[in-house]
Amino acid sequence: MSDHDHIYSTKFQDKVERSTLLMFIMTALTVAVGGIVEIVPLFYLPNTAMCQNDPTCNGTSHKDLQGNAIPMDKIVWNPATSAHKTMEDWMPGDGVRPYKPLELAGREVYIREGCFLCHSQMIRPFRDEKDRYGHYSIAEESMYDHTYQWGSKRTGPDLARVGGKYSDEWHRKHLKYPRDVVPESVMPNFFFLEKAPVDVTKTVKTMEVMTKMPFNPVPKTIYSAEYIAAAPEALKGKTELDAVIAFLQSLGNEVKFEEGVNYRD
């Protein structure tokens, strides 16, 4: 018996090693398992903010201390049931809404400049994070964030609830020349955003794209044809700096969090 016929492991392993096809198939199956188990359920289970065409978001139910369920339209803004019917009327606390045109344009700049590489938008349920940044983030808050922006690094502070914390004027100064406002900052100067006008065509197209998303699209009742048609007017004369500030100011005040509610179960 030659050495090549000797089996040093199991018969099956030996067979796999001799056959390119079998090795290919076995490998393709083995590497698929983990992803399927961890990812596929996230499209079906509650508490994953998969809300398309389903006001309960896959049966999500956040309960208060008395065990009463909080209606989901308090978490995710639904113009049909809310007192405030349009994007203009929407008030902080009405629930998660899609971005307004200028905010969306700002978000594009935020991604373009790689802000997510140094700033997270995901507050964890710890005492210090609550004291520093505010209530922990919940899944619904990023349901319209196509290309999520949770980030992985805090070279700078978390921005999930930066909306309303500073004035527009502070942001303007800080974004242009951060060290004029915060001497220890290591952030680059983004003064050039002030000279760049907002890309209106791109923003309008982005709004259309957001309504076509296969998962969690922006409802066409919110991004209606009229609303999209009115976007160029809202963007008129605005700079990329205005847009980024509008985006930052929109972050984190959408849901009114009730004391004692566990939004994580």
Partner: peptide, 9 residues
């Protein structure tokens, strides 16, 4: 833009 959002993305 990614076809997924938030948690799934």
């Amino acid at each position: 833009y990614s076809i997924y959002s938030g948690v799934q993305d």
